[in-house]
Design a protein around this nucleic acid. Structure first.
Lengths: 123, 123
DNA sequence: TCAACTATTCAAGAAACCTTGAATTGACCA
DNA sequence: TGGTCAATTCAAGGTTTCTTGAATAGTTGA
């Protein structure tokens, strides 16, 4: 993964709406979700959603496939992982404290249960 | 780590110059580096550097301390780690594929030697 | 105190980004 | 073919972000 790709991916992630999209779509796996359903879940106007979906797709973080009149979007988990590891590798040079903080927080998160949402927020 | 902090940190990271700063400063540890030396290393105009340093500090990714007429900046490794783990936890819900891609790339980076700079570029 | 040095702040302009409503494209079905 | 639905594209606007040169504040040593 080269720098410009990583930078594009980071820029794409650095927006509230787009993080919401990643958060919503990740648990859906490769199947993903249709744009209309996403718009409904997140309460977004269609053009606005389109704008952010295409930003994420451009950055390589989402894939899309057409099915009848729907377009399904799914997260490219490999790309997300690569982006994260870019920050760890290239920027932080495997600095032990960064890795430690990362590992610690990952464990803490798992302990508390800010996990396993996967469809439960279906109000 | 709450969402707005994480978002601020991600936004701060999503800029070429600021990634350069993190990359330069991480190996220096808590000691950090004086603004003037940073400017020289990266070839940045002083106001521009100040702008980006303060953006990173605002986001919590850098700390600063004054020493005589110099200001030393250093990376807050804990904050960087927290930001990374936020993406893993909160956004990707510990999705196994993301973790796998992250772990894989981390190992690949270590194998190749894009590591262990830690002060050797002291021209 | 004065000059030199380090770093930040200010102001202005350019560029990029985001949101919105209107228009458009493409697919489906009667 | 005409109507409807799903999604995108377009155009306009407002806001934010970035860069630059000029001005400012604080520190040091003669």
């Amino acid at each position: 993964m080269d720098r410009s790709k990583a930078l594009a991916a980071l820029s794409a992630l650095a927006h509230e709406t787009r993080l919401d999209l990643i958060r919503l779509l990740t648990p859906r796996g490769a199947e993903g979700m249709a744009a209309g359903q996403i718009a409904e879940k997140l309460g977004l106007a269609a053009p606005r959603l389109s704008f952010h979906l295409s930003a994420l797709e451009q950055a390589g973080l989402l894939r899309s496939r057409k099915l009848a009149r729907h377009v399904f979007y799914s997260v490219d988990t490999h790309m997300v992982g690569s982006t994260i590891s870019f920050v760890l590798n290239d920027c932080c040079c495997h600095h032990p404290d960064v890795l430690a903080a990362c590992a610690h927080n990952r464990r803490a998160g798992a302990d508390q249960g800010e996990v396993a949402v996967s469809g439960t927020e279906n109000t």
